[in-house]
Structure formats: C-alpha cells, structure tokens
Amino acid sequence: MQFRNLGSWLILGATLTFLIGPFIIIIFAGASAGNSLAFPPEGLSLKWYLKVFTVESFRASFVLSMGLAIFGTLAALVLGVPAAYALNRYKLPGDEMIRTIVAAPIIVPGIIVGLALLRYLVVPLNFTVTVALFFAHTALILPYAVRVVSSSLNNLRSDMEEAAVLLGCSRVQAFFKVVLPNIRGGVLSAFILGFVTSFNQVPVSLFLSGPGVRTLPIDMLSYMEITYDPSVAALSALLAFMSVAIVFAAERLLGFSRYV
C-alpha cells in the first residue's frame, strides 16, 4: 500500500511538473536581471516586469484585448441567453440545426474563421479592424455562452415559469423575475469563460488584426519575432496570474466549475 502511494505520487508529481513547471520557469525567466532570455536567469530583478507596462504597443493591445473580451462576451450573451432559453424550453422546428449552427464556430478551426471573415466580409464591406475583431470574437464566444447557459437552465425546472405565470406573470416577466435570478451563476460563469477564451484567443485574430490594431497575444507573437528579451516572459507570467486569479475568484464566488 505504501509502495503504491509512492508510485501514484511519483506519477502525479511528474505530470504536474510537466504541466505547471513551465510557468514557474517563465516567472523566473521574466525576473531576470540580464538582457537575454535564459534559465537560470542572470540574477533577479523586477525590471522586465516593470518594463512591460511602459511598452506602448503592449498597453494599446491590452486595452483592445480587454475591450474585445468584455464587449464581445456581452454581445455573445445578449444573443446566446435567449437562444439557450428558447432551445432549452421550447420544441422548435429545426432546433437541432440551430444548435449546430450556433455551436459551429467551436468546431471549425479559428484560423479559418478569421480568414473567411477577412476575405468575404471585412474586405468587401470595408469594416474597420476593431469592428471585424469584435464580430469575430462574438461569434467565437457564442457557442460557449449557449452551452454554459443551457447547462444551468437544465438544472432549473421549467414548472418554475409556469408557477410564475399562474401567479400573474407574463412570459417575459417570468423570465426576468424567476429564470434570470436563478441562472445568474451560469450567466456569470459564461461571461468569465468567454472573457478568458476571448482574451487568450489567437488564431481568429491572426488575419483580422491590422496595422497598429492588434490583440495582446498577437502583439506578443510579433514582438517575439523581433527579440527574445525577457519582457514577453514577464508579460506571459503577468497574464497567467491574471487568468488564474479571475478563475480562482470565480470558483470561490460562483462555483464556476459546476457550469463549465
């Protein structure tokens, strides 16, 4: 028994080292006092962590990514919550097809979505880069929004709305007074999942990003093509912390993992 415990901890230890180790390394690589990316770092300092905040393009792309993540997710929820509700509660003609269409952006590789949007929508209709990115991110998050909200609707019995109607609610009132308060956790979870997904998204934005208008991950990729200095490591570490903090807080406050 002792031996088996040891063996199982060895396996878990190795797996976790493989999965988590690189982040530990990147945190230290970003804290290098030297000018090149190396491990072990040449002395420790916070200068690269501080430098990240002074790089103009990082600041601009951070703002863009934040905006896309927040507003893209909100738009996806505005479209997705009613869709999830309708698909969950009513037998619709062709609901399987609607489900497939709404879920499709998750199945088709992002780079193809980005390219197709660029070539047949953005260029012909002369969208600005920001508008194009906004639409693309909304489409990308829509499947997550529908899925997460659906699963929390599944846990809510539909006779709740009937009870509300019999007490005098209209269908719309029943949704806002009874359904929405009870799927709030699911909607917030969908928001967080959508936010993280959008913020970390690369392939869809790859073709759509234009000169001077780039999402943060794309900006990091192009920065890396020029130099391997530790600032990208520092930025990566900061972003990792941000994502983990958001998800950790969500789990504590909402029981995030119940919905995802």
């Binding site: 999965l19 970390n200 990729l221 990792a240 994502s243």
Partner: peptide
C-alpha cells in the same frame, strides 16, 4: 492544478518552452 493551465494564454504556455529548449535554456 491539472485544469489550471487551460485558463492561461497559449502564448504564455508555449513561450515557456523557448525558455526551456532555447540556446540558453
């Protein structure tokens, strides 16, 4: 801990390998 990496930017996750496998890694 297993799920954690999924929440982190793939750029960050991949960049770590440069630190590990690079010429001065």
């Amino acid at each position: 801990l297993v799920v954690l990496p999924l929440m982190i930017s793939p750029v960050a996750r991949t960049y770590a390998w440069i630190v590990i496998l690079g010429r001065t890694g």
